[in-house]
Design a protein around this nucleic acid. Structure first.
Lengths: 361, 361
DNA sequence: CGCTTGTTTGAATACGCATTCATATAGTTC
DNA sequence: GAACTATATGAATGCGTATTCAAACAAGCG
C-alpha cells in the first residue's frame, strides 16, 4: 500500500487538454513549434492536475541530465565550501543542478566519481582530490568530461582550471621583502597536491631573485589544515625560541589563521609587529577582525566560469586539440599582517572586509 | 558528430556474457537471486566493456531516485555549510546522492523547490528558507516528503527537526547571570524566522525567572549576518557610550563574531573583561583563538540523523498520525567570552578547539 | 487554381533499466 | 522414482519523456 499517489504524467495532461502527449512535451519546451492557444490549453490543464514534468525521464530520453557533479575534497577548508557554493549558484542560474559529493581526506575519490558517472551527469568538477588514472580513462570511455578545479595535472586527458600559484606566491614574497623581512618560514600544505608545491616555488623563486638565499628560508609541514599548522608552528617555534623568523608564509589562509592563533596564544607574538604573516586563497575568514590577512585571492567566480565553459565545450563534443590548463592570476589583497600595505584608508578597508564576509545583507 | 560514444547498455553486457538483460540487472543488485558463476561472468563482461549501470534509467524504472535534495538558505552563515556538509556525508555513506540548491537571502525558495520536485527526489530538506504553502501542498500532491531543518513550522503537513532554541537561550542566560551580568543586550536575527525569536524568548524567559526585569534588557536587530551585527552593535554602542551593557547575546555565532570584532575594533572593549558575549550554533569559526565563544552547540549530526530518518519514514508511506516536530537539546559550550566557565583545563580546551576546527587531520 | 514553403500535429519509437510472471533446473523428501 | 519445493532464468512489459517522421493544414505566389 505504498506511494498510492499515482503520478500525473504528460498523458494525463494530454487527455485533459485534448491533445497528444508530444504536444504536452512541446508546451514545456521553450522554443518548440507549437500554436499559442494549444500551449495555453496544455499549461492550464497541467496546472489543474498539478503536473510536473519528470526530469529524470527527460534525462533518460534526451541522454542529457542537466546535472553537474561537484566533488569536494577538503571540506574543512572554507575555500572549498565557498567554491562549492559558487558552483551551485552558477549552475542553478543556468537551470542545471548540482550533485554534490565529498571525499574524506586522503580517501580516493574513485568510488565517488563512479557514482557520478553512473548518473550520466553532463560533467564532473573535481576539487582538491586525487583521482586514479583508471577512473580518468573510464570517464573518457563513457564520454563524461572531467575538469579539475584548483588542481593542476599532467594527465593530457584532463582539463584543469586554477589560480596562478607561482605568480601569487611571488606577490607575497615581494610584499614581505618590501616590508623588510630577512628570514622566512614557509608552512607547507599537502605534499601530494600540486597547489602547495607551486605556491612555495613561486614564493622561493621570487625571494631568490631578490637575493634572499636558501639559508634564510625554512620550511615546515603544516598538513594543510588549521590544526596541523597550529601544532607545526608551535613545535617549530618552541625549538627556535627566541630566534624567530621575520615572516611566515602559510600556503593557504586557513593554515595562516592557525599560525596566527598559535603565535599569539603560545608565544605572545604580535602580528605584524613582531612577525609578519601571509596566507593564500582569500577566504572570508581571513577578513575577520583579528586577522585581516594579507593574502592572494583566488578569483573564484572567474574560475567557476571558466571551468563550466570548458566542461560545456567538451560536452558538446569539441575535443580540445591540446590539453587545456587554464591558469588565472591571483589578486593581491593587502591586509594588516604585513606592515605598510594599507593602500586604501583603514576604515574603508574594514568596511570592505565586513561586507565581503557576509554578502549584501 | 556529437557524442559518438554509443553508450554501453546492459544488453551489450548480456550479449557478451551470454545471458539475458535481466540477469545483468540482477548481477548488479546485491540481494538478487542469481547464480554465483553467472554473476561473475556478467561482472567480468561489464568490466571488459566499461559498463556502468545507468542510475537515471534505474530511477525511472524503480520510481525511486536515491537522491535527496538539500536546499540551503543562508550560505554565508557557516552553520549552514556545515549542515550541508553533514548531509552530504551521511547520505553518501548510505549510497544516496545530494542534489544541492541554494536560495538567495530573501528570495522565495519556490522555484528551487519546484526543480527538486521535478527530479522526483526521495525527499527534500529545507534549511533556513521560507516556502509558500502552495508549494507545500504541491509536494504533498506529488508525494515527496519535505523536512525542515533548523526551522519550526505550524504547518501540520511539514516535518521539522531543530535544536531547542528556548532551552539553549536559557542556558546562556543562566551562564551570563551566574557570571554577574546585570544589564543585557540582545542582538536579534531574521525577524521572519522562528529560530531567532525562540532563542530570544528562551533567553528572556530565563532572565525573567532570575529576576532580571525588562528594563535591564535591550534588543537590537542584527540582520542575521556578520556585517549586519557589526554595524548594528557599532551604531548602538556609539549612542550608548560610555554606558554599555554587561552582556551581549547574539542569536547566532556568526553574529556574535561580528559583535566581537566591532566591540574590539571600534570601542576597544575587552571580552569578557569589560563585556561578556555569547552566541548560538557552535560553528567552527567560533572556536578560533581570538573568539573561543561561549555558545550552545546544535547537535548537527543527531539532527541530520533524525531528519533523514523522518524523511525515510514518510517516503515509505508511513504517514505520521500527527505532525512531527523533533526538538533536540542544545549543548552548552563553555568558552572564554563569559568569565568563570573553564570547566576543562584551558590547555585541554584549546586542544579540543583546535581539533574541532579541522577534523582529524 | 496548382504549386511550393512553412508551420502544427500525432503515431510510433527509443532511452536503459527493474520487475512481473511463467518456465526450467536443481535439490529434497517419502 | 514420483511429487514437491526452492532457486535461476528469460520474455515481455512498464517507467515518462523527447524525438523522429510523415501527414495535415495554412499561407504565399505566379
Amino acid at each position: 500500500m505504498k506511494r498510492k499517489t499515482t503520478r500525473v504524467t504528460s498523458y494525463d495532461v494530454a487527455k485533459l487538454a485534448g491533445v497528444s502527449q508530444p504536444t504536452v512535451s512541446r508546451a514545456f519546451t521553450p522554443d518548440a513549434s507549437i500554436a499559442k492557444d494549444k500551449r495555453d490549453r496544455v499549461l492550464a490543464a497541467a496546472k489543474q492536475l498539478h503536473y510536473l514534468p519528470n526530469s529524470i525521464a527527460a534525462s533518460l530520453s534526451r541522454a542529457r541530465s542537466n546535472i553537474v557533479a561537484v566533488i569536494v575534497g577538503d571540506m574543512h577548508n572554507p575555500f572549498y565550501s565557498e567554491s562549492l557554493q559558487a558552483f551551485i549558484n552558477r549552475l542553478q542560474a543556468t537551470n542545471r543542478q548540482v550533485l554534490a559529493f565529498t571525499v574524506e581526506d586522503g580517501r580516493d575519490c574513485d568510488a565517488v566519481l563512479m557514482q557520478a558517472l553512473r548518473y550520466h551527469v553532463d560533467g564532473i568538477v573535481v576539487t582538491s582530490a586525487n583521482l586514479s588514472s583508471d577512473l580518468i580513462s573510464l570517464s573518457q570511455e563513457v564520454g563524461i568530461p572531467i575538469a579539475l578545479f584548483n588542481r593542476s595535472t599532467s594527465d593530457p586527458a584532463l582539463t584543469s582550471v586554477r589560480c596562478d600559484s607561482v605568480q601569487g606566491g611571488g606577490l607575497l614574497a615581494h610584499a614581505m621583502f618590501a616590508a623588510g623581512a630577512h628570514s622566512y618560514l614557509i608552512v607547507r600544505g599537502d605534499p601530494q597536491g600540486s597547489t602547495s608545491r607551486l605556491r612555495v616555488k613561486g614564493f622561493r623563486d621570487a625571494l631568490a631573485a631578490l637575493g634572499i638565499g636558501d639559508g634564510s628560508i625554512t620550511e615546515i609541514d603544516g598538513g594543510s589544515s588549521y590544526a596541523g599548522s597550529y601544532r607545526a608552528i608551535s613545535n617549530h617555534f618552541a625549538s627556535l625560541s627566541p630566534n624567530f623568523p621575520d615572516a611566515v608564509f602559510a600556503v593557504n589562509d586557513i593554515m595562516a589563521i592557525g599560525c596566527a592563533d598559535a603565535l599569539r596564544a603560545k608565544f605572545n607574538i604580535d602580528i605584524p609587529g613582531d612577525i609578519m604573516l601571509a596566507g593564500f586563497d582569500g577566504i572570508r575568514e581571513g577578513r575577520l577582525g583579528p586577522y585581516h590577512l594579507t593574502t592572494v585571492r583566488q578569483p573564484i567566480e572567474d574560475m567557476v566560469t571558466k571551468t563550466l565553459e570548458l566542461l560545456g565545450r567538451e560536452d558538446n563534443g569539441e575535443k580540445p586539440a591540446a590539453q587545456i590548463n587554464c591558469v588565472l592570476p591571483g589578486i593581491f589583497i593587502p591586509g594588516r599582517t604585513v606592515p605598510g600595505l594599507e593602500e586604501i584608508a583603514p576604515e574603508k578597508a574594514l568596511e570592505a572586509d565586513i561586507e565581503s564576509i557576509s554578502g549584501k545583507n
